[in-house]
Design a protein around this nucleic acid. Sequence first.
DNA 1: ATGTAAGCGAGACGGTACGTCGTGTCTTGCT
DNA 2: AGCAAGACACGACGTACCGTCTCGCTTACAT
Lengths: 202, 202, 202, 202
Amino acid sequence: MSENAAGRSGRPGRGRRPAAEVRAAVLAAAGDLLLRDGLRALTFDRVAKEAGVSRTTLHRWWPSPGALAAEAYFARSRPVLDFPDTGDLRADLITQLRAFVRWLKDEGAERPVAELVGAAQTDPDVARAWSENYALPRRELARERLRVAQRQGRLRADADLDIVVDQLWGACYHRLLVLGTPFDASLVPRLVDHALHGAAPR
Amino acid sequence: MSENAAGRSGRPGRGRRPAAEVRAAVLAAAGDLLLRDGLRALTFDRVAKEAGVSRTTLHRWWPSPGALAAEAYFARSRPVLDFPDTGDLRADLITQLRAFVRWLKDEGAERPVAELVGAAQTDPDVARAWSENYALPRRELARERLRVAQRQGRLRADADLDIVVDQLWGACYHRLLVLGTPFDASLVPRLVDHALHGAAPR
Amino acid sequence: MSENAAGRSGRPGRGRRPAAEVRAAVLAAAGDLLLRDGLRALTFDRVAKEAGVSRTTLHRWWPSPGALAAEAYFARSRPVLDFPDTGDLRADLITQLRAFVRWLKDEGAERPVAELVGAAQTDPDVARAWSENYALPRRELARERLRVAQRQGRLRADADLDIVVDQLWGACYHRLLVLGTPFDASLVPRLVDHALHGAAPR
Amino acid sequence: MSENAAGRSGRPGRGRRPAAEVRAAVLAAAGDLLLRDGLRALTFDRVAKEAGVSRTTLHRWWPSPGALAAEAYFARSRPVLDFPDTGDLRADLITQLRAFVRWLKDEGAERPVAELVGAAQTDPDVARAWSENYALPRRELARERLRVAQRQGRLRADADLDIVVDQLWGACYHRLLVLGTPFDASLVPRLVDHALHGAAPR
DNA sequence: ATGTAAGCGAGACGGTACGTCGTGTCTTGCT
DNA sequence: AGCAAGACACGACGTACCGTCTCGCTTACAT
């Protein structure tokens, strides 16, 4: 996926190259690095070398290695964002959460996601990129689906939809980030049931 | 703090100093730095300078600046661990979660906690320190309280207590780490009610 | 010294400075240190500080503090190399050796030279710098002068010119390095006479 | 030759040990290190570890690692010091110089001697140890032999015996220290002849 | 089509931090 | 009393990044 500088159509390294080409090479190299060696290894130095690109260029386009990492990750893993609405809220939630959990587990997204959220705690650029490109859109999507259900009477009128979202996705993140043991896909239905019906006896 | 730190004042900085004295100075300086300037500023270099301690010593006792930060933080925020058991599960959960949320908000723990959990995603030493000294004990405490409630029939027999914990604390962490907007203490009762009774109509 | 050092005065220390300017500052500071405080004091740390230069830069250009010391010394004491040929071998040798001895004594070269040769025994970089820039060229010059004399019949045909060189300059170095008592200029004629006519009765 | 701390007669490492035993272990370990890995490797740290001795002890008895190295070397290579007097000055000089050259070459003394003389240029303790234990006694011995020869008329009355010594031994040291190419034993007779009869035509 | 300027590669420099090693000093505990 | 063990301050080394800057070149765009 990432192409070595040498193989770059035989051109001498100097002179101006189309911005698109440069950006593509950078994102490819950065994505490779992130998946292969983790966020710590994703330094401007290394990306520049692997992408056959000048470090100057990286500084021009990205404010920090973390920001580059975030963008590289989004460019790679356009995740499935559309939220199904089959009318069956429980089924839809299970579908969506299971897709989320499986995306983490099966596509190797666990480490990059954890590392990026981790970096966001310290690097405002990463935080912004993460929020704008990922967290907020997903949250809004879920909220919208829940709002529809609430209007249809499938959720209590006084239910706090934000809290529901926090409980569902927060439970997954909690294990990933705080406990270090990712959420298992097989538990998703129980998670949804707990969110819908609670843990107390009826 | 140390039993023979007394006669030491006039001496030059060379030679051996009691370990306890040094450790205390380091943890104090590290804690200050963490709270004042954040985790990024907590480097061995700076801690050494502020604590009047040799950098060598830091390397001897802590594997990474992050690990030192974690320990410094624990040394400072020991408390808040005992889980009440008044017999009223809902009230106890609210008490405990509210204490957690307030600890984050009112004692300035928000940033350090977020940064430490963030660093744990990348630095295994921080991860270990965090798990052993914080996450796991707290989790166990909560689980134990829920187990009692379950035995008393106040929670469904088939409730998954781990999931309940993930939903309650995970919701708080979710806002803090993923959304960047800390959980508000006034929402705690609703959070607990959602966990106990769910969002679906009865 | 550099062609565009002019407009640079007001700028902050960051960014690139002309290599020549930096090198000059480094060599000046290193030479000062070497002469003033000796080779032990010539550390990268101190040179960097005194030259207003980054330590990184020193590592980039010199493999070891010793190597830097050697170069700094050569940059300062270029001269004294041309070997006279007046036709009078004895006089020429005396001239040259006396210049050597006086250079050591009068220009404060004794200590640096001794220290550099000393360091060369342990630091291959110093050894190489010393050989290439100093010892070998000088030796070759002397040998050449002796070769001419030998061709003119002023030295025995079977004389070993290398040995003659070793005896003349070696005697000086012997006192300096092994005995610690520099050779006195007034003894130079006797030294040359001994080399030419030996110590045995005719 | 050097004995590991573990094998040291089964004693626990603590408590007082006879000084002689400690000194012997130290000198053995230091000598090994010097010959095996060179002077740079002979640090107090390493000697202490290899000799099963406390670093404190080394500081008590030796002012610097160099001084220890020097003493360790002398303890090991009690060199043949007695100067023969067969009546034949030329033969005696050849014998003695050849022994010197061969000692350097055949017994691996080249590197340690060069390194010690090198260190002496910078470390006054090494310089003193070297002078007192080696250079001066040897010089005196040679001078004495030459003085006898001079009294017997085998050297000119006006010959400067110090210069003769400087020329003979200085030639060897010159190659070793300044040129880096040790003197060859087969050249010794020519060296002596040059010293006795000079390089000029009779 | 041609000149100009925008943008790139290369790479040096200042700076901060890390991790390591060595020295000299000091304390403690054992023998 | 003397030694081993070992902690501490200090200073230096070597490395890795980051952010900044200069230079030379090439292509893209505007004229």
